[in-house]
Design a protein around this nucleic acid. Structure first.
Length: 619
RNA sequence: GCCCCGAUGGCUCAGCAUGGUAGAGCGUCCGCUUGGUAAGCGGGAGGCCGCGGGUUCAAAUCCCGCUCGGGGCUCCA
């Protein structure tokens, strides 16, 4: 940004002609003047668009400094594009000037000439040594540090909230008064949320597991928080992705795919961005700047903006599995699969006509999320958050959610609305280090359909803004894997053998031939168990070692194949989940597997089915 | 962004306080072993001790800077 500040006896202007980009103004502003003032000619530049909040802070600081130096109170802001050769978009500047005026008006008398008009003007400059000053203001990420905090953060700090527990019988009590006996995990979640007590100074257990098991690993060749997935990890991830997509699809969402990067200068997006901390990756393409999406919101908003939607189409659901969403989290915030800079997020946005529609849809999606968590099989605790006024009007609705869930939940009640939503819930997984991480979530958004101009035609034929739900039924897929591994670890600590659900186990059945002559027989068995992931440890190792290797890989069914098996056709199976050994026929084996994998996706083995053919991905 | 910690064969780590020929286990390769429910035996190969500078006759080791990684704080739309 460039400014030219003139200490003036007076400035007068008069609008002569309107341009295409003109802001709407009152008749009274078409002609105005100010005496004894600092006239500030201002042009907003392209680079300023990186951060509106920082720009306002820096610019007003500069102007205040000059005003103090000259000891003037009155400030006249004059939008004047001609100071620069690389102006920002008119939309950005148009948004900037009123905010700039507002900021300076806190401690000065301020007037402003309108943006987007040709004007004639008269100015008298005092002509003393300090009367003509110019400044260049640069908004750089470095300067943002302490002073410039985005609107969203500021408002979050201002908002006070109170914490309660809502029980199944509908009673709402202060957290302090609730008896957590029998709800220890909820207590852990509550402590984490409220006090934020973060003791552990260790690496989360899932990190060692994900590396040792050759699922996922850090990638030193990329930015931190961008991981590499080995074949077994990729299998697990793909299965979860496929499953969540099936679930959401059969719920009635329409799947779409949208770009991963968006134009900083797109007027609607830039305005949205300025509501949030600058945590996005930026990408340069020629001299255009783009940001990598941090959710699927943008693409879906832009599609919905262009759609013609009737009330008959509601609720209308779009879904995308974002491969990837990007958030440039601060270095120290990153943690294994729990917190990443590039992550995979199933994201659904539902348009509904009104608050009644929003509530019934919210309820259905709440049930869908419960089912997901039950399938995943990890622990979870519920947080429900809303604005106080929303609760006052919807007590019964909120209570019905808790009844549906069948156990008490943590409630956070805000005095005023901190973000764009009036209500949300999340299901939080509590990990081995007693930290909580959100998985499923649904939010009722009352702001963005207007902001992004999403509309539908109601029964009266009018074009109106719907309400919108933001939903992730599963939460980030990476984080689901995190939860599965942490849960397995915790199970292991309690004495049960750690394992993944059968449908996600990279190897479901491992055959251990007692000598190499039995390998062909094992190959026949692999073929007979065709629709499952069965492999053969054909290496020339001792049986003990093969068993140990299979156990370390958490293989759910380990089958030793010797002469006895070849003759009888009965398999000697070591069942990980129960620790028992059982003899079963191939057909029984098949049935056992089939019963446990009904309704979930299948993918073939991600590696060669003979262990002797398998490379090591690490160590 | 701030504060702590770390970096040595493919992996996990020892060695570093007191400078003097670089070590182990696992894995890998080659032999032997053909076994019945969690580690059979022997041998070989494999190292710019993260990068750059300094101190020293001599640096994996001491000092400074950097890079990368992890954890904590803050943060988590």
């Amino acid at each position: 940004m460039r400014i030219l500040a003139l200490h003036s006896d007076f400035i007068k202007y008069e609008v002569t002609k309107k341009t295409k980009v003109a802001e709407e103004i009152d008749e009274s502003l078409k002609k105005n003047e100010m005496d004894e003032c600092l006239t500030v000619f201002t042009s907003v530049e392209k680079e300023d668009m990186a951060d509106m909040d920082a720009l306002i802070a820096e610019a007003s600081k500069a102007v205040r400094d000059i005003a103090r130096q000259l000891n003037v109170d009155s400030i006249f802001i004059y939008p004047y594009v001609h100071l620069t050769s690389s102006p920002s978009t008119p939309e950005f500047a148009k948004e900037f000037f009123p905010l700039f005026e507002q900021e300076l008006a806190k401690d000065h008398t301020v007037k402003r000439s309108p943006f987007g008009y040709y004007k004639s003007f008269n100015i008298s400059c005092k002509g003393h040594p300090l009367s003509e000053l110019s400044r260049e203001i640069h908004v750089t990420p470095k300067k943002e540090d302490e002073e410039v905090v985005s609107e969203a953060l500021v408002s979050e700090e201002r908002i006070t909230s109170s914490w309660h527990v809502l029980d199944v019988d509908g009673s709402l009590v202060d957290v302090g008064d609730f008896d957590f006996t029998g709800h220890e995990n909820l207590k852990t979640f509550v402590d984490y949320e409220i006090s934020g007590s973060r003791a552990a100074e260790q690496e989360p257990p899932h990190v060692e597991i994900m590396r040792k098991m050759e699922l996922v690993d850090y990638e030193p060749g990329s930015d931190s928080g961008n991981l590499r997935w080995y074949p077994k990890g990729t299998l697990i991830k793909r299965l979860l992705e496929q499953h969540i997509t099936n679930v959401v699809h059969s719920y009635g969402a329409m799947e779409v795919e949208t770009p991963i990067m968006y134009d900083f200068e797109h007027p609607k997006l830039s305005r949205y961005l300025h509501r949030f901390p600058a945590r996005q990756y930026t990408v340069l393409s020629g001299d255009k700047r783009f940001f990598l999406r941090f959710a699927a919101c943008f693409g879906q908003y832009l599609i919905k903006h262009d759609m013609t939607v009737s009330y008959k189409h509601l609720p209308l659901r779009l879904y995308e599995l974002t491969h990837y969403s990007f958030r440039r989290e601060q270095g120290g915030e990153l943690s294994g699969l729990r917190r990443l800079r590039a992550f995979t997020m199933p994201d659904m946005h539902t348009l509904v006509a009104d608050m009644d529609g929003a509530k019934s849809e919210f309820f259905e999606q709440f049930k869908l999320c419960i089912r997901w968590m039950e399938d995943l099989g990890t622990n979870f605790e519920t947080g429900i958050r809303f604005v106080r006024s929303f609760y006052e009007e919807n007590r019964e609705f909120v209570a019905s959610l808790v009844r549906e869930l069948g156990r008490p939940v943590l409630v956070e009640m805000w005095d005023e609305r901190p973000f764009y939503f009036v209500m949300k819930f999340e299901f939080n997984f509590v990990d081995a280090l007693k930290k909580a991480s959100a998985l499923s979530t649904v939010q009722i958004d009352i702001e963005n359909t207007e902001r992004f101009d999403l509309t539908y035609i109601n029964e009266a034929g009018e074009r109106v803004n719907p309400l919108m739900l933001h939903t992730s039924v599963s939460g980030a897929i990476d984080r689901n894997v995190f939860a599965l591994l942490e849960q397995a670890y915790m199970d292991g600590q309690k004495g049960t053998k750690p394992m993944l659900p059968l449908w996600l186990s990279p190897t479901q059945v491992r055959l251990l031939p007692i000598n190499e002559e039995l390998v062909p027989f094992c190959n026949d068995l692999v073929a007979q168990l065709g629709d499952f992931r069965v492999d053969v440890d054909d290496r020339s190792e001792s049986l003990g070692k093969k068993i140990r290797a299979a156990e370390k890989e958490w293989v759910p069914y380990i089958v030793v194949i010797g002469e006895k098996e070849r003759e009888s056709g009965l398999l000697s199976v070591r069942i990980r989940s129960t620790g028992e050994k059982a003899d079963m026929s191939v057909e029984q084996m098949r049935e056992t597997l089939r019963a446990q994998t009904a309704g979930v996706p299948y993918r073939p083995l991600p590696l060669p089915d003979h262990l002797s053919k398998r490379p090591k991905f690490r160590g």
